[in-house]
Simulated assay, not measured.
Amino acid sequence: MTATETFVAHRNLLFTVAYEMLGSAADAEDVLQETWLRWADVDLGEVRDERAYLVRITTRLALNRLRTMKRRKESYVGPWLPEPLLTAPDVAEDVELAESVSMALMLVLETLAPTERAVFVLREVFEFGYDEIAAAVGKTPAAVRQIAHRARKHVDARRPRETVSARETRAVLESFQRALATRDFQSLLDVLAPDVVLLSDGGGVKQAALRPVAGADKVVRFMSGGIGRTDAVLTSGLTVVNGNPALVLNLNGELDGVMAVRLDGGRISGLYYVRNPEKLTRVESETSLTLR
């Protein structure tokens, strides 16, 4: 294959790697553009494994971008949430892929240092070997093993405790959706875990809570004073975002945001509401993701 054909064949994989490292589709696209420019200058005769070579370029560029983003996030207004992606329904059927790009896990990955995140993503999600990862992150294989162990332990302590099926998530979201539509806040309380936490990302552009809202009563009060207010015409629809069922909410006929959830014990323990318009550009057309 030509350089172009090879890049196109692996593009969805490279985007998925970059997105899982960055949590931003826009930044992932920038990384892919830079990857292509570097790949176009490579002597293909010297490349033994084209897939691994491309992933190595993408990882190095994403690591550089991740360090830059860290400074950007420090000045971000309110909580920072990953950019939601409209994904094909069949992504939800791939349990490993759906979990790896879920809002809940992506937020856990945000708590890792850049190199830890890269190692975790390449090892635990994409199952790359230690030698391949070492070449991508500029560490020895022995160091990568230690980093992988540390990152895995960190993530396991914070990731959702149980695997929840798409069907169960959809059923809970439908109950949540009905409660919102009818402004039945008692029913809303019924689907929320007592210690539920809501994170809303307005990016300083749209109104959002500047800090996490914790506790079912506080979350219901927050929602009743915002998207649940009586003068607002709220409509919502179920969709698949980041491989998992989610809600797209429209307020007075305009796209207001995307709401993803985390479930524990059959109730909503995490609500992730992205309202920043700059992060809502990828919810109208599907983004292709893959682990291979």
Rank of each mutant, 00 (worst) to 15 (best):
V164E: 13
A28S: 15
V248Q: 13
R48V: 08
V241R: 05
A208T: 12
V191A: 01
G243H: 07
L291F: 04
F126I: 10
Q33N: 01
R67C: 03
M21R: 02
G129E: 15
H10Y: 15
T68C: 05
G202Y: 10
T287S: 15
N64E: 09
E278N: 15
E110P: 06
D190P: 00
S100W: 04
R72S: 13
L271E: 11
L13E: 15
T87D: 10
R161H: 13
R152G: 10
D30L: 04
W80L: 15
N64C: 00
L97A: 05
P114M: 08
E132T: 13
G225H: 05
A26P: 01
S269N: 15
A92T: 11
A246M: 12
E96A: 07
T163N: 13
D156G: 00
V220M: 07
D94I: 04
L112D: 11
E278M: 06
T111Q: 09
R161G: 15
L44Y: 01
V31W: 01
P79W: 10
T169D: 07
G202E: 12
E74F: 10
R11S: 14
T115N: 08
R71L: 11
W80H: 13
L44F: 02
L37V: 14
S75P: 01
F185V: 10
L192E: 04
R158S: 05
T290C: 04
F128N: 07
R267N: 06
F176Y: 09
Q207D: 13
A216H: 08
L54V: 07
V213Y: 10
E83G: 15
G204I: 08
T58C: 09
L180V: 00
L109R: 09
L63K: 02
E83F: 14
S100I: 00
V137G: 04
D231M: 00
S224C: 01
E116Q: 13
I133V: 14
